[in-house]
Write a protein that binds this DNA or RNA. Sequence first.
DNA 1: TTTATCGGACACTCAATGAC
DNA 2: TCATTGAGTGTCCGATAAAT
Length: 263
Amino acid sequence: MPNSPSPEPDEPASNESQTTDLQPSMTVHPLGYSSMPMHMYPFPSGIVPTPPTRSKRRQVKNACTNCQKACKKCDDARPCLRCVKYGIAEECVDSHRKERKKGIKRGPYKKRDGKPFSLDPPYDGSTQPSIQMATAIPGASSAIPFISPVGFSPNLFGPYPKPGDPAIYYPPFYLAAPISAHGLPPHQNGDGEPGYHHPHFYPTTFLTPYPQPYAPYMMPHRPDGQVALPPAHLGFPPISARLPQGTGQQDQRDDRSEEVTPS
DNA sequence: TTTATCGGACACTCAATGAC
DNA sequence: TCATTGAGTGTCCGATAAAT
């Protein structure tokens, strides 16, 4: 049986770069996508980087004990999404990592034919990486200041950027107006209902005013039991107003809907 | 049909090693 | 001292089994 109905919306391995994954490719893809299937990537057809090279699979530094035990994808948040989904958030704790052995003798290293390799020609600034073509979407900008969700380290969304690293590109789909199943923004789809309940439009649930890899319903809870939400001045409706009713996540959305108050 | 299990491919870390 | 190598270890994909 295929895995499709699996409770884990994991990225399929088939979407990941087959190991042409020499070091340079590690920085090709923007962060946050590692937890999103490639077919959901917000690149308009024709702009999607081709051939469909898989991005390197990214791993969390430390999976929780539950995910580790289940051999399932975890995330950096505690509780992790999987534990929250399964209602075992209180059991979501970092697994213990063994200490690496020291003093192991290693044989003489062989040199790899001379020079450092590079898959890509040196970037001279005159051309844009194909992935950045997504900025061609009207109204979008790549100059989006990164805002970390309340209570979350910026590192949660990136490969631990270091000082001097180039700015991380976050695709404009985070900013684009959501399109409902009727082709209208939420609340305008003709029946007065939020337009986010069609599974074929699942990607729109990722629309969020700031870059983060979670669907809105996946927004992690803060220690006070509420969930971080974008500031109201960004003009986004409360998440509770644009999510399907009656899902397993409903309770989570409800207790944070009042978190957004116009300022 | 859904959920659980787990083998194994892949990713990551970092001490040992080698070049300068 | 710094860069490179590659073994050790962890993560999690995806196939399969079991449960419902």
